[in-house]
Amino acid sequence: MAQTEVERTEAEDPRLREFEARIERGEKIEADDWMPEEYRRQCLRLILTHANSEIMGALPEGEWITRAPTLHRKLAVLAKVQDEIGHAQLIYRVAEDLAQPYGKTREDFIEDLVAGRAKFHNVFSYPAPTWADVGVIAWLVDGAALVTQSSLLETSYGPYARILKRICAEEAIHLKHGEDIVLTLAGGTEAQRAMLQGALDRWWRPLLHFFGPPDEVSPNTARAMRWRIRLKSNEEMRQQFLSRYVPKIWGMGFTVPDPGLRRDEATGRWEYSDPDWDEFWRVVKGDGPLTAKRLALRRLSHEEGRWVREALARPKAAA
């Protein structure tokens, strides 16, 4: 059935009225509950993007596990990347339940990801060339992720809301780990401070892009807000992020590469220069600086592990 027909049929469906009334009352929707097709699709897209991002997010930091500069840091980066992959494991399980009518499993999701057919967060298409990038990623990228994920704690889709509680708790620990790396470099040698400033400069634009373009009023978003899949607008979250982190960066004696950045005292809002939304859209479409390279790396390891997965799927006893 074509999508428009599904939607027309659903609009007349008394179950839709009941569904929306439940959301109105603040009830959670569970995997086995009836839900409009569009709700399922939107939740699945949101949740899969999150899961894929946890997997792809392991790569820029993973490159530094082998090079972390103290035993303590090595253990901390390893534990953090392990957490992210563990998050992906949890989130894919929620996605599998949602995707049941489509008959898709985690293996399909990962095949989609490595084939470049699935979305993951733009931020993981950018390079992490120095140790300071590891600190900035754990502090600010995880900080941005925590703003987004905290806003989703009240999402109407129950299974996702529940795992987000655990994920947010772990992300808060990552933030401390990142802040500790950043503060150590900030209090370090001239070379270390320069390395940190370089990483801040590099990550600033991707961080502004993190929350998506402002004042997005697509019909999809309007519906996502009405169904309480999402609860905050992109700009609300970006403002929250700027309020939380810009004063800290300035307070440490560092800058961000935007001379136009200022807080309007009257409105309390942050004004910032145009962060090149064309670049944002290019990266969304798969043309980020390292999108192809990181996907190729994932694809390679996926292919190298295929014989193991096949061996487990077809043991001798079952043959």
Binding site: I55, V81, S301, V308
Partner: peptide, 16 residues
């Protein structure tokens, strides 16, 4: 070195 490159997500976690 296996972190993020194991044949299963579960094994990424186990080896880590």
């Amino acid at each position: 070195e296996w972190t993020a490159f194991a044949p299963f997500i579960e094994e990424d976690v186990a080896l880590a």
